[in-house]
């Protein structure tokens, strides 16, 4: 991983460096003069980052602007699920993303599940332009790259959008993941005040305690989770398991209800 030095404030951030290294590999150098010129001349009328592609309109010499499209295959749902799981493994990722930063070792997280956030090979990017120029990349494409690189420098999360998810979506999924983990096993640091600092409130229930009430009752529809999700793939060869599961869920309700409303309600003392 490349490190940027703190002294050079104008120097692009790590992800910009990383992006330019991709650009170089497809022959777009940031020192390319016509690219700079084009970008600077504000010939790029619009640029939009969408899942799977970046679309830009470039004012060429003709009246009709040229349309540039840079396609980059978005991650599939399954791939995103893997990526989010990898990101959820460290609270640091959530923290950085929340504060608007692109976590530096995010590529490692993606790599750990066999994915890449950035283009791994030049061929990952498919570029086209409506101009008649035979050369690829044409100057319009190059201009688009320059503007895109600039945009990415300011908002690295556009890269997420390009790959199919916005930063907010990722954050929300991370939160959901944490919610699932709240019922599961992953630990998260917050609320973990050292006991030494809690001596004064050592026996005190938090105020939120009184807000919690319970609705111990049967579900509206039996085994609705199984009905919604279907059975896990591993049980596909065993169609009888679905019925067993439905009976099991019903039994759990029956037993939980029996326990929940058993015993003394109001105090007869013995």
């Amino acid at each position: 991983m490349t490190e940027t030095t703190d002294e050079e404030e104008t120097e692009p951030r790590w992800w910009s460096e990383r992006w330019w290294s991709v650009m170089e590999s497809i022959g777009v150098s940031r020192r390319l003069e016509r690219g700079k010129r084009y970008a600077r001349a504000e010939r790029v009328l619009s640029i939009e980052v969408e899942p799977g592609r970046v679309v830009a309109e470039i004012q060429g010499s003709r009246y009709e602007p040229h349309r540039v499209e840079i396609a980059f295959e978005p991650l599939t749902k399954e791939q995103w699920a893997d990526a989010v799981r990898a990101l959820a493994s460290q609270a640091l990722f959530s923290a950085k993303l929340l504060s608007g930063e692109m976590p530096e070792n995010i590529e490692e997280a993606f790599a750990s599940v066999g994915l890449s956030l950035f283009p791994a090979a030049p061929s990952d990017l498919e570029m086209s332009c409506s101009c008649a120029d035979e050369v690829v990349p044409c100057k319009h494409i190059i201009a688009t790259h320059f503007v895109l690189a600039d945009k990415l420098d300011g908002d690295p999360f556009l890269l997420f959008g390009w790959r199919g998810m916005t930063r907010d979506q990722i954050l929300r999924r991370l939160r959901q993941y944490r919610a699932a983990e709240a019922s599961g096993r992953i630990v998260d640091g917050d609320g973990n005040r050292p006991l030494e600092e809690s001596v004064r409130d050592y026996w005190k229930m938090g105020e939120s305690f009184d807000t919690v009430s319970f609705a111990v009752g049967p579900p509206a529809v039996n085994a609705s989770l199984i009905k919604r999700l279907g059975v896990p793939p591993i049980w596909k060869p065993h169609p009888e398991i679905r019925g067993s599961l439905e009976r099991l869920y019903a039994k759990v309700t029956e037993r939980a209800m029996a326990l929940a409303y058993s015993g003394r309600g109001s105090g007869e003392r013995d």
């Binding site: 709240a182 050592y202 305690f209 807000t211």
Partner: peptide
């Protein structure tokens, strides 16, 4: 409600002296 319960845990619940004290989250989940 999970969050409310987590936040309400009295510190004494975590006070078993057995290495590092558990976080409220971990303890409640477990």
């Amino acid at each position: 409600r999970v969050e409310a319960l987590r936040a309400a845990m009295p510190p004494v619940c975590r006070a078993v002296f057995d290495g590092e004290p558990e976080t409220p989250d971990a303890l409640l989940s477990d």
